[in-house]
């Protein structure tokens, strides 16, 4: 309850801050719309040269990519600003301020800055998702769609867990971005259907670096039906990585040496 009340304060401050920078508010909306259009055109051009990609036809890829847009919008709104600041706080020694608070430092640092200027993009991405689902030629059923949305939520948490896990090495590396750029290079894996990958790359993307679990596996559950092993796999990997990331965070805090560490 205390954490919920705290989060509501975060939201209030974030919205009032976003309203101060109105031009940036609109730039952010247009930026994400451009990203959505570029991705849709990219797949449209690809489908001019093949009818199937990774076992999916165009309407299926459209649902898949719109799922990714939704996860990306949620991440940008809820977590991204906080992730941006984390390496800076560590390198400047400003983390002290957060460590002395009587709340979980991970909670505070992950959720403090809600990007109100990206909030509209959640609505845009949801609209695109609704359009993709409504224009899908076959009936999908309420249960499957419900499970799909649940798995997208799981994908959002997984995206956050992996993002912060790539940033935590900044406690030792002292570089300006940690391994953040590598994370962004690797997120491209989650923008492609998982079945295009083969062999050990595919196994890695479904387990150790589960980028394919973010939006591709949820789409497979939607199209291929509910398979308990797939659900268990997605939720289990997320839970395991979350626990691993929390332990990693605690270990990193022990290595933190405050000012200009």
């Amino acid at each position: 309850m205390r954490y919920l009340r705290l989060y509501l304060y975060f939201l209030r401050f974030s919205f009032s801050r976003a309203m101060e920078f109105r031009l940036d508010f609109w730039f952010r909306i247009v930026m994400d719309v451009v990203f959505y259009v570029v991705q849709i055109i990219f797949f449209s051009v690809l489908y001019n040269h093949t009818s199937v990609l990774g076992g999916w036809e165009f309407p299926q890829v459209l649902v898949f990519i719109c799922g990714f847009f939704l996860i990306d919008a949620l991440h940008m709104t809820v977590f991204a600003n906080n992730m941006w600041w984390l390496p800076i706080l560590v390198n400047k020694g400003d983390l002290d301020y957060y460590l002395v608070r009587p709340v979980s430092s991970l909670f505070f640092l992950s959720l403090r800055d809600f990007a109100a200027n990206s909030f509209v993009n959640i609505l845009v991405a949801s609209g695109l998702m609704a359009w993709a689902l409504l224009s899908y030629p076959d009936a999908l059923g309420g249960l499957r769609i419900g499970t799909y949305l649940l798995l997208l939520l799981n994908g959002t948490i997984l995206y956050y867990v992996m993002h912060i896990a790539f940033l935590i090495p900044v406690f030792w590396l002292h570089s300006n971005r940690g391994l953040g750029d590598i994370f962004f290079a690797m997120t491209r894996y989650s923008e492609r259907p998982d079945r295009i990958f083969k062999g050990y790359v595919r196994r890695t993307l479904l387990t150790i670096l589960p980028f394919s679990l973010i939006s591709s596996l949820p789409a497979r559950v939607l199209f291929e039906g509910l398979k308990p092993e797939l659900l268990l796999h997605a939720l289990g990997v997320t839970a395991l990585l979350f626990v691993g990331m929390t332990l990693f965070w605690k270990r990193a805090l022990r290595a933190y040496a405050s000012a200009s560490s």
Binding site: L46, H49, T50, S51, V52, L53, G54, L179, D181, I182, A185, M186, R188, Y189, R192, R195, I196, F197, K198, V201
Partner: peptide
């Protein structure tokens, strides 16, 4: 070097698998 090598490997592998799938499925 981490960014260079892993960034390149990630980008190249995605392109490799994507076009391998397109050529094989088309």
């Amino acid at each position: 070097w981490l960014n260079s090598v892993i960034g390149f490997a990630a980008h190249f592998s995605i392109v490799y698998f994507l076009w391998q799938a397109i050529f094989s499925e088309s």
